[in-house]
Amino acid sequence: MKTIKAIHPASYHPIADLITYNPLPSQNLRQIDPFIFLNHHGFQTYPKNNNGLPFGPHPHRGMETVTFILEGDIMHKDSGGHESVIEKGGIQWMTAGSGLIHAEVSSGKFKKEGGDLEILQLWVNLPSKHKMTKPKYVGLQNEEITRFELDGGKISVQLISGEWNGYRGPLETISPMLMSTLYLKPGSSFTKIIPKEENVFFYVVRGEVQIQGENIPFRNLIEFNNDGDSLTVKASKDSVILLGHAMPFNEALVAHGPFVMNTQQEIMQAYQDYQAGKFGVWED
Score class of each variant (00 low, 15 high):
Y167D: 00
V254Q: 02
I19R: 09
E198W: 05
Y12Q: 03
Y46R: 11
I145T: 00
K88A: 13
Y274S: 01
L122T: 00
E71G: 13
L231N: 11
V66N: 03
P25Y: 06
Q92I: 12
Q44H: 12
L120K: 10
K185T: 12
M261L: 11
I145Q: 00
P59R: 08
F68T: 10
F190N: 09
N39S: 09
I4N: 01
K111T: 13
K109I: 11
I211L: 05
G166L: 02
H13V: 10
D229M: 02
G114C: 06
N50H: 13
H130V: 05
G99C: 03
F202H: 07
K2I: 01
M268S: 14
S98A: 13
L182D: 03
N225I: 00
T191W: 04
E251W: 02
V233I: 15
W164K: 09
H76V: 05
G228Y: 06
W282H: 11
W123M: 07
D116T: 06
N22V: 15
K185N: 13
L53V: 09
E64S: 14
D78Q: 09
A16K: 14
Y183H: 11
K234C: 10
K111L: 01
N125S: 12
V204K: 11
E223K: 14
F43N: 09
I69M: 05
T67S: 15
N142I: 01
F202N: 02
Q210Y: 03
W123G: 10
D78M: 09
V260I: 10
Y137E: 00
P34C: 06
G153S: 02
I241P: 05
G277Q: 05
L184E: 05
L126F: 09
H60W: 14
M247S: 11
I101S: 04
F279V: 04
N215I: 05
G108L: 12
I174T: 04
V281P: 02
G115P: 09
M94T: 13
F148N: 02
A246Y: 07
D273V: 00
N142S: 15
K278A: 04
G114H: 09
K111D: 01
G228K: 08
S230Q: 07
A276R: 07
K129P: 02
T95Q: 08
K77D: 02
A96G: 09
G72S: 05
H256F: 14
H41P: 03
K131S: 04
A270Y: 08
G228S: 03
G139K: 11
K48T: 11
R30E: 13
S230G: 00
H8V: 14
E283Q: 15
I145L: 00
V138P: 05
S98I: 07
E251G: 03
P23N: 02
D78W: 10
T146I: 05
D33V: 02
S79G: 11
L242H: 08
I174Y: 01
V157F: 11
K5L: 06
P170A: 03
K192M: 12
L182E: 04
G80D: 08
T95M: 10
H60S: 10
F218W: 07
K111R: 15
L117R: 06
G257E: 13
H102A: 04
R206M: 10
G257H: 15
